[in-house]
C-alpha cells in the first residue's frame, strides 16, 4: 500500500501556519535533509511534499497528492472537477485574507457594486470595457455576474499588479488583501460591498479517500488516522 501523501505550502505565511498547526496537533513533520521538498510524518504512514500553494489544488485533483493544506481562495479558483476533491476542514484558523474589488480613488461616484454596474454600462456605451486585473478570474467573474455587473473584461495578472490602474492596463483590481495597505498606497479604494471571497487555510482531500462520517472536529491526527484506516 502506498503511503498517504500530504501536500503543504512550501513558502510564506501559509507554510509557517501549516507547520505550526501540525505541531499543535502533535504531528511532527520531519524534513529530509538531502531533498528540500520532501518529508514525512513521524510515526504515521504519511509522506509530506512541499509545493507552491498555487499548485496544491491541481496536484490533489490529478492524484499526485491525497491531502493538502491550501488557501480556500486558491482551492475554489483552481478546482477543475468538483467531484474528485473535497474540503475537509474549511477554517483551519490561519492564512486569513479577503479577495476584494478596488477602484481608483478618483472615481468619487463609486462606492458600491450597483455603482460599478452603472459604470460598466456607461463605458460599454462608449465602446469600452471595464477592465479588471486579477489572479482570480473564476471567483471574480462569478461574483460580478451574481452582483449584476455584466460588462467587464478580466485582465490576467501576476505579482504586484496593484499598480495596474496607474500603469493604465486595467481600470480596477480584484486582489487578496489582509490589511488593505497596498491598495490604499496605490490610490485605490475597496468597493464597500465588493468582498468577493473571504479565505483562510483549509484542509482538502481526494473525495474517494474520505470515509463517511469523518470526524468533523479539527483534530488533524484523528482525521489522518481515520483516512489511513479507511484506505486499507
Amino acid at each position: 500500500m502506498n503511503k498517504l501523501r500530504l501536500l503543504l505550502p512550501s513558502e510564506g505565511a501559509l507554510s509557517e501556519g501549516a507547520l505550526e498547526l501540525l505541531e499543535n496537533n502533535n504531528i511532527s513533520v520531519i524534513k529530509e535533509k538531502s531533498r528540500k521538498y520532501l518529508g514525512y510524518i513521524q510515526g504515521m504512514d504519511v509522506d509530506v511534499l512541499f509545493q507552491r500553494s498555487s499548485d496544491i489544488t491541481e496536484e490533489v485533483e490529478s492524484g499526485n497528492g491525497d491531502l493538502g493544506i491550501v488557501g480556500l481562495d486558491r482551492y475554489f479558483e483552481y478546482r477543475k472537477n468538483s467531484y474528485s476533491t473535497k474540503v475537509i476542514i474549511e477554517n483551519l484558523g490561519f492564512g486569513k485574507a479577503k479577495l476584494v474589488l478596488a477602484c481608483p480613488n478618483s472615481w468619487i461616484d463609486v462606492s458600491y457594486l450597483s455603482d460599478l454596474s452603472d459604470v460598466a454600462i456607461q463605458l460599454r456605451n462608449k465602446g469600452m470595457d471595464l477592465r479588471i486585473a486579477t489572479k482570480y478570474p473564476k471567483l471574480v467573474r462569478d461574483f460580478l455576474k451574481q452582483a449584476g455587473v455584466n460588462y467587464f473584461v478580466l485582465v490576467s495578472a501576476s505579482g504586484g499588479f496593484e499598480a495596474a490602474p496607474i500603469l493604465g492596463y486595467a481600470d480596477m483590481i480584484a486582489d487578496i488583501t489582509v490589511t488593505g495597505t497596498t491598495i490604499r498606497d496605490n490610490d485605490l479604494k475597496i468597493i464597500k460591498d465588493g468582498i468577493v471571497f473571504e479565505s483562510q487555510a483549509s484542509l482538502i482531500g481526494k473525495k474517494s479517500l474520505i470515509p463517511e462520517g469523518l470526524d468533523s472536529s479539527k483534530d488533524l491526527k484523528k482525521i489522518i488516522n481515520q483516512i489511513l484506516t479507511n484506505r486499507i
Partner: peptide, 16 residues
Amino acid sequence: IDGPLGSRSIEDIRER
C-alpha cells in the same frame, strides 16, 4: 480629482 481614472474621463464622472 487627481490620480488615475482608468478608461473613464472627468466628463464621464460628471455625467453619471
